[in-house]
Amino acid sequence: MAALLLAPTVADAQSSGYAGAPFREHPIEVAQMAALERIEVTARALAVAAVSDEADEDGAADGSGEEHEGAGGPLVDFGLLRANLAAASPELEKQLAAAIDALVEAAEDRKDAAEAAEEVIRLTPAARGKLMTDAVADTPSFQAALMASLLLDEGGIAEGYEEATQGKASAYATNYFALQRVKSLWEGLAGRASPQQAAEVAATIAILDGLFPSQETPERLSPDPEQAEAPAQQLVGLLEGVADAELYLGRDLAAAATVVCDVAAKGCASLEAGKEALGVEELRIAAGYYDQTVRDTLGMMAPETAAAIAEALEEVDEGGADEAAEACSPLLEGLAEGRAALTP
């Protein structure tokens, strides 16, 4: 397997046209910090849902029987950073794991999740501090990357609105709080913006505020499920200019494929070194970037390669560390072929 491990490549921020390229320079850290952001906003949404349900029980029950969809979300997101956190702080990892477990259990049992949510929210800043240094995390480039993730990632604000129009109330609530977090992060970047940039960002945020006006799902959402997408995309484009950072990893498919290859190679190296939990985590992160950036294109341009990669990633996702280790060879081979197919 060592022969198939791909040598890490140097991120080339300059070729992106911007000074910074956080997704290329710190792909694992961006993925993990974005996951932590999602955990926190989900906790805030679940806390509100618990309070609403209590109020309903005091009055007339709405009888909707709606499940707290997305309660499994924090567990999935935690799976992207847990091993790294444990390596940095075993105690904090245990505390956060327990808090997330309690939150998910309370939500699934339709019990009051407020206390569990508070504990998750209390612990996330410390987790941030352990996962990476402030010197990088606090840069405009990195902060903008987190905003882009909250806006455009799967289950993010753009997609969340679409899910909300299809009846998924938890998607609305979570992304209401995600939008508040985006606005909070924007305050840290606003000083860098020109008056015109600031005005355009404000106008775009106002559009999103109109779609997510309060933490309760509006009675009537837009008939257009994709109505949040255009302003979300526009906002990310504006953030690129303000932060001078490339925020669309998939804009350059060859570069995106390189990031996927590098992160996957790191995961496989961790597995080979006996760091099983860490290796699986890194492979999951690679899978996330693969799905977001190059999967659809490879499906067109190199369908057999795409199928081979899909099969290997399924082993990583559904199996344990042993299955993931076995999948490394075909996965890395497939990713190398895929990168070649996408490189002009």
């Binding site: 998939g250 294109t297 067109m300 341009m301």
Partner: peptide
């Protein structure tokens, strides 16, 4: 054109 695949058929 295809928006998400970044291709033309």
């Amino acid at each position: 054109t295809a928006e998400t695949s970044h291709t033309v058929t």
